[in-house]
Nucleic acid binder design. Structure first.
Lengths: 190, 190
DNA sequence: GTGAAACTAACATACGTTAGTTAGTGATTA
DNA sequence: TAATCACTAACTAACGTATGTTAGTTTCAC
């Protein structure tokens, strides 16, 4: 691991706790055991760290959903696969995911708009899946925008509690989420 | 409306967009058409604004869930009522709710721990409802911690998209959420 | 002796906040 | 009626500190 990657890693860990504004270069330096100015031998700016992680994760999510929607499956299958991908991406680097979820609003104007664009595209592709499910007769006739946002919010909650040291693997979490989202809490006896 | 309330209102509106750290007293002052220092004739500190809204909303949520769990109902009924209360609280002041959701981590140590305590209590009470539902035979045998967090996350997504000018009333939103959470996306034909 | 990685010193700016003052308004009193 | 007082809400000026970042220099292993 290069020093640059090391810095990024610790920066994300701290950013998860203190938020983007709460993480100062001097705090980051202290954690690294060096002076704040020394950090600039490896990275170009504080904004850069945030930008990189946001663009990086947004791209991963985008690839995942486009891939799923490119292959022929029915909606429940698509949703299952997407949830698995989504959870895997989130769990791969929980600090990065947490920053991605909470700190994107501190991106500079241009990058922020770019980010929102990618996020909307992701939501749009999920709405397509839900719409498909309705047309197939697999899903209830819900409002696709409402359903997509609620679904995404449920999935993203994973970053708030998932511990790699815990009992569940990302695959099991994905399975639980899929069950929750598809069948809900109630037993089938309404 | 007193000047103090007016300041609080605009502060929350700005905080929703810029985050707690992104809202500076000088920006707030500009929006108010006065000087930054003048704000201190009405409020005691920037932290105070955050504290007030966090404590205020946390208390409301707490009252709601305790009330629901104090009355005798079965779990699906309790959940329905709680969701209605939850959404109503969120929609009452969307700016405040958004700040409550995203900026609580910027509370000072002491108040933050207090906040987390109240939040945990809320989660705990929801787990009780889910546990009750399982024992009654109404709910699937899910992990209550997982279910409570996922449920809460789904509910809280309301602050990200709800517009009072839109078609749906808070009651209708609550109904949609209840359906989503209880029966899921799938039609009952598994 | 070359390159990576740290250092010291400093700059310009931005921040929350305090202190002391002023302007206007409405009620009370001489 | 005119003068006094309290109150509200704004002002100017400034303080002390923190921030991201730079420029130039040193250290040290290969």
């Amino acid at each position: 691991m290069t020093r640059k990657e090391e810095i990024r890693l610790i920066a994300l860990k701290l950013m998860k706790f203190h938020g983007f504004s709460g993480l100062t270069m001097r705090l980051l330096a202290k954690e690294l055991g060096i002076e704040a100015a020394s950090i600039y031998n490896h990275i170009s700016s504080k904004d850069d760290i945030l930008e990189q992680v946001c663009v990086d994760l947004a791209t991963k999510f985008q690839s995942a959903v486009l891939e799923v929607n490119d292959i022929y499956f029915n909606a429940p299958e698509k949703l299952n696969i997407l949830i698995k991908h989504h959870v895997n991406i989130l769990c791969e680097d929980l600090n990065a995911s947490s920053v991605f979820m909470h700190e994107w609003r501190y991106l500079k104007e241009e990058k922020r708009l770019e980010f929102i664009g990618k996020r909307n595209l992701y939501e749009q592709e999920i709405r397509k899946i839900i719409q498909l499910g309705i047309e197939e007769g697999h899903f209830n006739e819900v409002d696709t925008k409402f359903a997509a946002i609620t679904l995404l919010s449920a999935l993203n909650s994973v970053v708030e509690w998932y511990k790699p040291s815990g009992e569940l693997s990302p695959e099991q979490v994905a399975q639980n989420l899929a069950q929750f989202v598809l069948t809900g809490l109630s037993k089938q006896k309404l």
